[in-house]
C-alpha cells in the first residue's frame, strides 16, 4: 500500500506547474480581471495594445516582488477607478448582477419541482 501512496504523491507533485509557469498563470489571472483602458471592451490579458503589454509587465514585476493578486488589482483600481475592473465586485449594486443567475435558476427549479411534478404519465419506451 505504502509504495502506491508514495507513487501517487510523486505523480501529484509532478503535476504541479513549475515556478516560472506559476508566475505566468498568476499574471494572466490578474490581467484577466482588469479591462484594458484604451481598448473597447478587451481585458488586459487579451488586449494587443501597448498599454496592455506595459500593464502586464508591471503586473509581473509586482507579483514577482511578492505582492498579492488583490494588491496588484487594487493598485490599478486606485489609478484608473473601478471602471478598470473586468467585473463589478459582488457588493452594493454589483450584488444584483451576481445574485440574479442563482436566484433565477433556484426559483425555476423550485417551480418545476413544486408546481409541476407529479406521478407522471404512463411509462413509454425510452430507447
Amino acid at each position: 500500500m505504502k509504495p502506491v501512496v508514495l507513487v501517487l504523491c510523486l505523480v501529484a507533485l509532478a503535476a504541479q506547474p513549475a515556478g516560472a509557469q506559476a508566475l505566468d498563470d498568476r499574471v494572466r489571472a490578474v490581467a484577466s480581471r482588469l479591462m484594458c483602458p484604451v481598448c473597447e471592451g478587451r481585458t488586459v490579458a487579451e488586449s494587443t495594445s501597448q498599454l496592455a503589454a506595459q500593464m502586464r509587465a508591471l503586473i509581473r514585476e509586482r507579483l514577482a516582488r511578492g505582492e498579492a493578486e488583490e494588491e496588484v488589482v487594487q493598485y490599478f483600481v486606485d489609478r484608473y477607478g473601478p471602471s478598470v475592473l473586468a467585473a463589478p465586485p459582488p457588493r452594493g449594486s454589483g450584488l444584483a448582477l451576481w445574485a440574479l443567475p442563482v436566484l433565477l435558476v433556484a426559483a425555476g427549479a423550485a417551480y418545476v419541482l413544486v408546481r409541476l411534478c407529479g406521478p407522471g404519465g404512463p411509462e413509454e419506451d425510452a430507447a
Binding site: V105, G108, A109, L113, C117, G120
Partner: peptide, 22 residues
C-alpha cells in the same frame, strides 16, 4: 397542470429549460 414526474425525460427537459433560460 400537466402531470410530469421528476424522474422522467419530461422532467429532465424541464430542468434543462430552467438551466438554459437561466
Amino acid at each position: 397542470p400537466a402531470s410530469v414526474s421528476v424522474a422522467s425525460r419530461e422532467g429532465a427537459f424541464l430542468f434543462n429549460n430552467v438551466l438554459f433560460v437561466g
